[in-house]
Design a protein around this nucleic acid. Structure first.
Lengths: 287, 287
DNA sequence: GCCCTGTCATACCCGACGGGTATCACCGGC
DNA sequence: GCCGGTGATACCCGTCGGGTATGACAGGGC
């Protein structure tokens, strides 16, 4: 009577995001009528109206918006439970997860730190096999929430640590990466203002989830493209200090005086209870 | 194919907690055979074995333990979504929850702070109606997690703030509450060691969820019982400083020098997005 | 050793519900 | 007024959730 099934949540999320029963049904791989009925049933069961079926379109009610947010968290938690359970598959010892540990890292993250962490962890007694999951396009927080990862290296202030437990690992300044021949590359230091309005070096725009933000700079998809564009003298980029490790000869790095420092954290779901994870965190904070 | 329904989760949680299909079925209000089938189907769907059906009893596999923990979080998130959606029921404005805000407080919490907070909040422009939910027996974190509350006053280090966002509100020392006539009541200050081993004043034991922890002291259920036992000279208690507000004439309060300070936090689910809640937090931190 | 008890699994049945197809009701635009 | 597009309704069917009855199997008392 007062229970909501995950299927109903999935259906509602699709409709709430598409604001269109037909498209939502298509996305769900089903026909539209049963979807309409399912939503009606959900509304009846909850005793509230979630969608405003106005002629010419569907819109969310206040309750619908609440369910959109809360339901997302609930669905993530459910799929995370399924994923982590599946991953724990073979280890039938009752002492906790001994299997693999999935570590999500940003592709552009400091390899130095990661390498040291993995090396130190491998020597630990509670060590599990660590699978490194480079999340190029996807947010690491998302991966932690829906169970694709167990632990992540995240970079404040770019990633939000909200909802996770975390420990600070490393703080570094940021540098501007310029074409080696550019006049600005000769400066000992620069400010953000110095590089934000250079006509011949517009800042590149990362394309995320297929949507390209508007702006003057070139569109890029990965770090190699960016490196190439810088080397060609077409753009400039701002990166944490550890990016110096992958610079080319055609690149020049100049410290930025007023860029906010980047803090690398190790973060994990707050409710985690795993010996292997605890050991990894201990290793990381002890580096 | 890779989806888990909340009903299946509920069933599994019951079996995993009872470690007995018959009792779990009874608790769920159903017969045992369909429960067995549901668990089998869940195991098949996840592709892992969750329970070890040994003759003479059921035990959890490693994967089962993972699902026990993760599933609890998922179920809590789901019921929270349903509860909060239902509570948002009538407010059909698209600006967020404008309804009521449920604030969970420990029954023994500082009334002073709570009164000031509610008074200040009522004057706010974004103020919603605040329902105060005194959680005598139940953990406030549980209430936040499963949606019975939207925000809570929690007391570190007694409550774990893990998994929530929180702001510090108030730090106070702790006091020993003794019978007024007791010799120790004359001291200007005491240490924990001073009161932990007094033969005539064993520390009282709170009964939680029906289970009484073993020990020498008397069993108590609420604060009034405790106050009475102290007044009768039968026990001693340790409380935050603000407990002085409800002391009786027969009580004596003595500061404890080495008790950890109690920090009152305002805490809320990390993913919350509500104007009313934001206003309450702003009010609380501005006190 | 035998039976009895307690456990979970299997067999079978039924009603309900999820899902599909066809169609309706309604509105905006040409 | 017709048409395209929306979501809702009507009807049908297969699957599945749930109940009852029963089986398989181990352990304990006699």
């Amino acid at each position: 009577m007062d229970t909501v099934e995950t299927r109903e949540l999935r259906y509602f999320m699709a409709v709430a995001e598409e604001l269109h029963f037909g498209r939502a049904a298509e996305r769900l791989g089903m026909a539209q009528p049963p979807l309409s009925r399912a939503i009606q049933r959900l509304e009846r069961r909850l005793g509230v109206s979630l969608l405003e079926r106005d002629r010419r379109g569907v819109s969310l009610t206040g309750a619908g918006e609440v369910l959109l947010h809360e339901g997302r968290a609930a669905l993530d938690a459910t799929t995370a439970a399924a994923r982590r359970t599946r991953r724990a598959g073979g280890a039938d010892r009752p002492g906790g997860t001994r299997n693999r540990l999935v570590l999500a890292v940003k592709a552009a993250a400091s390899h130095e730190l990661l390498r040291k962490l993995l090396a130190a962890y491998a020597a630990e007694p509670d060590a599990a096999e660590v699978e490194v999951l480079p999340s190029g396009t996807c947010e690491q927080g998302e991966m932690l929430r829906d169970g694709r990862a167990d632990v992540a290296l995240m970079h404040a202030p770019f990633n939000s640590l909200v909802g996770f437990d975390s420990e600070e690992l490393l703080t570094e300044g940021q540098i501007a990466i310029l074409p080696a021949g550019h006049p600005l590359a000769a400066h000992p230091a620069l400010s953000l203002a110095d590089i934000s309005d250079i006509p011949d070096l517009p800042l590149a725009r990362w394309s995320r989830h297929g949507a390209h933000p508007p702006g003057p700079g070139p569109e890029i998809h990965d770090q190699t493209q960016l490196a190439q564009l810088i080397a060609l003298g077409r753009t400039v980029a701002v990166f944490p200090d550890s990016a110096r490790a992958w610079l080319w000869a055609e690149h020049a790095a100049v410290p930025l005086t007023d860029a906010p420092p980047v803090v690398t954290h190790i973060a994990w779901p707050a409710h985690s209870r795993s010996l292997a994870l605890a050991a990894l965190i201990r290793t990381a904070t002890g580096l």
